[in-house]
C-alpha cells in the first residue's frame, strides 16, 4: 500500500514532475510491435487490391451494359438529353447570373459579372411568371424564387438607375 503511494507520480513533489510538453512527448513512445506492422502491411495490400478490383469491375459493368442493345439505347438517350439541355440553355433569352435570382434581388446586372468600379446604369429583376407582373409593378412582393429556374416563363423588369445607384425615377421600369 505504502509502496503504491510512494510510486504514484501525483504524490511526487512538483519540481520532479514533467512539464505538460514533456508528458505529451511520452506519447511518441506508444508504438505497436513488429507483428502488428506485418499484419498491417498484409491487410493494406489486400485492401488496395480489393479496391482496384472493385473499381475495375464497376467500369467493366458499365461498358458491358453499354455494349447491350438496351444499354446502348440508354446511352444514346442520355447523350441526347445532355445535348438538348445545352441547346436549351444557349437559346434562353437572357442568361441571368445565379446571384441575381436570389430573393434579395435588385442586384445591378454588371455587378454580378464584374466587381470593378464601373457605374451601373440599370437593374433587372426576374419574376417567375406573368402572374407576378402585378407584383413587379408593386415592388416585387410576389417574388417566387422556386420558379425562377424556368426562365421561359419569367418576367424581366428593367429599371434605370440614377447616379447614386438608386432607381432613377418612378415609372422608369420596363417589363419584357
Amino acid at each position: 500500500m505504502s509502496d503504491k503511494v510512494e510510486n504514484s507520480p501525483a504524490d511526487r513533489i512538483p519540481e520532479s514532475r514533467p512539464s505538460l510538453e514533456e508528458l505529451l512527448r511520452l506519447k511518441r513512445a506508444e508504438q505497436p510491435d513488429a507483428a502488428f506492422w506485418a499484419k498491417f502491411d498484409r491487410d493494406l495490400e489486400r485492401g488496395i487490391v480489393q479496391s482496384v478490383v472493385r473499381q475495375r469491375s464497376l467500369l467493366e459493368r458499365g461498358f458491358t451494359f453499354l455494349g447491350r442493345p438496351a444499354g446502348a439505347l440508354a446511352g444514346l438517350v442520355l447523350v441526347a438529353a445532355l445535348v438538348g439541355m445545352l441547346l436549351t440553355e444557349s437559346s434562353s433569352p437572357l442568361s441571368v447570373p445565379r446571384a441575381a435570382t436570389s430573393p434579395e434581388s435588385w442586384i445591378p446586372v454588371a455587378a454580378a459579372e464584374d466587381t470593378g468600379a464601373e457605374r451601373q446604369d440599370f437593374v433587372i429583376e426576374v419574376f417567375a411568371s406573368e402572374s407576378a407582373r402585378a407584383g413587379a409593378q408593386g415592388g416585387g412582393e410576389e417574388w417566387r424564387s422556386g420558379d425562377a429556374g424556368n426562365l421561359r416563363q419569367a418576367v424581366y423588369v428593367a429599371e434605370s438607375l440614377g447616379p447614386d445607384g438608386t432607381p432613377d425615377r418612378p415609372g422608369s421600369r420596363v417589363l419584357f
Binding site: 512539464s19 514533456e22 511520452l26 511518441r28 513512445a29 506508444e30 508504438q31
Partner: peptide, 11 residues
Amino acid sequence: DLQEETVNAEW
C-alpha cells in the same frame, strides 16, 4: 504499449 526503453527523460 509504451516502449519504455525509448523514454529517456530527466524528469
